[in-house]
Design a protein around this nucleic acid. Structure first.
Lengths: 220, 220
DNA sequence: AGTGTAACGTACCGTACGGTACGCCAATGG
DNA sequence: CCATTGGCGTACCGTACGGTACGTTACACT
């Protein structure tokens, strides 16, 4: 049977095939309609494949979930920063876009469900699903934002010692209590596109106020 | 048997008896050593009581968890604000105490485990455990902090339109990415008492900078 | 002491779910 | 046209856990 041989995907590095992507989309579907519904049988049924195939392709439930997180992350990868021309307006616009994107992601049903599952798994010692989610969420966005922050510092628009610390403040100003509230199922929190834009603008304004550099335009 | 009669605790309002508190402490124990270990049998064994008693007292697993959350919350209730004399230093000290207490709570194993369980339950439509946790966590601290913020505004130390919004900013500046990271099991985040104090001081300083009122002392 | 009640311990039931086995079909390749 | 392979569907197994039943013990009240 040579299990070890065809388990090169065990490290989770191989990009999924087209059929596999269909399966992962089925997982995402199920996830979106209530995280507790994601059982191996349900996935197999939804994706019209057999459970045995699932186990062959993904090893076990954890592997399936891990692949799903990576797949979802690969879809969201967008809006990276590459503006060589950086003035105060461009910085503000870029930061607002980052903030709005981030808010949209963390309040999306898919992300909520994924985070819930990962957090549930994080209780038990086994499984590094939480790490995967962190790497593709919080840390990925940090790495994408830092170049922008550093470019802004170079241009004198921002001033800070450590870009990690500056980013964490930005993260806090943008997310505030949103993530914990949606994760705990707070129904009173409704984020429309308009509110997201307003929140993003407010967060960026506060951030700029805390981290304004020598070249930053004077405020009021 | 008159079930309905002796189920006056079904609403979850009655304070637990001493023996019941022992049981709840057992749950807290189990919770702290890995949230997945909290099974009804494990609780019964740890608390040296029978499962039947658990069901009689708490109705079902959800009721037990709910009672545990309330019990834990009742232990943490501390450090409320009642200083009539409010100057900049007192405000800063109070805010820092709030921030430090909050950081200590959300990074404690008990709180992490409790939040994980509640988030896990929040996936399914049933159970309002998430609401309970929110009410005793995020919202409780909000209600405790707002009087302080409003007193500070009255004294001209802070300026803001809406205390809820101001609080949310404070919340974000204090918590930043801490809660999501600990919930997802990030091992690289270690919060010593010293770091917590430093973080609290930084958050308060940033907050005061954003919300300084007319009577606030000039900075640098 | 006798009776009643609360609660302990344990055994038990049903179900849900992760994981495996196996039979069948369909396409591909000689 | 036949054989091999990959994948579908289904049935099945084992276990873990929520919830229930029941016999027994310990204490309280009269």
């Amino acid at each position: 049977m040579q299990d070890a041989a065809d388990r090169s995907d065990e490290a989770g590095e191989d990009p999924p095939s087209s059929r596999q992507r269909q399966v992962l989309d089925a997982v995402l579907d199920l996830l979106a309609e209530g995280g507790d519904a994601v059982t191996m049988s349900a996935v197999a049924q939804r994706a019209s494949c057999s459970k045995e195939t699932l186990y062959k392709w993904f090893g076990d439930r954890d592997g399936l979930l891990t692949a799903t997180v990576r797949w979802q992350a690969s879809k969201v990868k967008a809006g990276s920063f590459d503006k060589p021309r950086l003035d105060a307006n461009a910085l503000q616009a870029s930061l607002e876009e980052f903030a709005a994107t981030w808010l949209k992601v963390i309040s999306s049903p898919t992300s909520i469900a994924l985070n819930r599952v990962a957090i549930g798994q994080a209780a038990g010692a086994k499984s590094n699903l939480g790490q995967i989610v962190l790497a593709n969420g919080r840390f990925a966005i940090g790495e994408r934002l830092k170049p922008l922050l550093e470019a802004a510092r170079k241009a004198g628009l921002l001033a800070f010692e450590d870009s990690e610390t500056a980013f964490r403040t930005f993260f806090g100003l943008v997310g505030r209590d949103v993530q914990i509230r949606v994760l705990l199922g707070d129904q009173s929190l409704r984020l429309s596109a308009r509110e997201i834009a307003a929140d993003a603008a407010r967060a960026v304004q506060q951030f700029m106020r805390l981290y304004a550099g020598p070249q930053a335009p004077a405020r009021d």
